[in-house]
């Protein structure tokens, strides 16, 4: 069977420029438009082939949309387009300040369960992590636009740390709820 001739670049799939700064409203709008046209529900009465093709295309669209929507995955994807595998935390930073910050945040997280008001402290930690993550997004965008992939990779590695930390915050919040 002939393959689908859908663009392989995620940005092209939504006719968007390949850049870290994505117009999220436009992305969502185009995503919904494609879904409205190609969602398997639209092909329910069609032949088995048409249904298969629609599922295949929409599965691609869903994957691309999820990658572009997420600040972290989008950065990973841009680097992968440039030939840098950034899906694992391979890049090691020598930024001492960051390493110190990393350690102190980890300690703070570990101590929270014993705190008098763990939820308040979690919220504070979360806020800090979100602020740092957002600042790193700016940093990444700058390095990437300037073509400095090494620095961009380092920003991404830091983003990955904060994203993981935020996941752990969420997990802990969930566990505290269960108590």
């Amino acid at each position: 069977m002939t393959a689908l001739e859908s663009p392989s670049n995620y940005f092209d799939m939504f006719s968007l420029p390949t850049s870290y700064d994505v117009d999220l409203r436009q992305l969502e709008h185009r995503y919904v438009n494609l879904q409205k046209q190609f969602h398997p529900d639209r092909y329910a009465g069609k032949s088995a082939q048409d249904q298969r093709l629609a599922i295949q295309y929409i599965a691609d669209i869903n994957q691309a949309y999820a990658a572009l929507k997420s600040p972290l995955l989008r950065a990973q994807y841009l680097l992968s387009l440039a030939g840098v595998d950034a899906s694992h935390e391979t890049a090691v930073t020598r930024d001492m300040d960051f390493l110190m910050e990393q350690m102190s945040l980890r300690e703070a997280l570990a101590d929270i369960s014993d705190a008098a008001d763990p939820f308040a402290e979690l919220a504070e930690l979360e806020q800090k992590a979100v602020a740092s993550f957002n600042a790193l997004q700016q940093e990444f965008a700058g390095h990437y636009a300037a073509g400095d992939l090494e620095l961009a990779s380092e920003s991404l590695a830091k983003m990955q740390f904060y994203s993981k930390l935020l996941n752990e915050v969420e997990q802990l919040e969930h566990e505290l709820d269960e108590l």
Binding site: T2, S6, F38, A54
Partner: peptide, 11 residues
């Protein structure tokens, strides 16, 4: 083949 071409044309 026709089905694929139609899909590609719609995309």
């Amino acid at each position: 083949e026709f089905a694929s071409r139609r899909m590609n044309a719609s995309i």
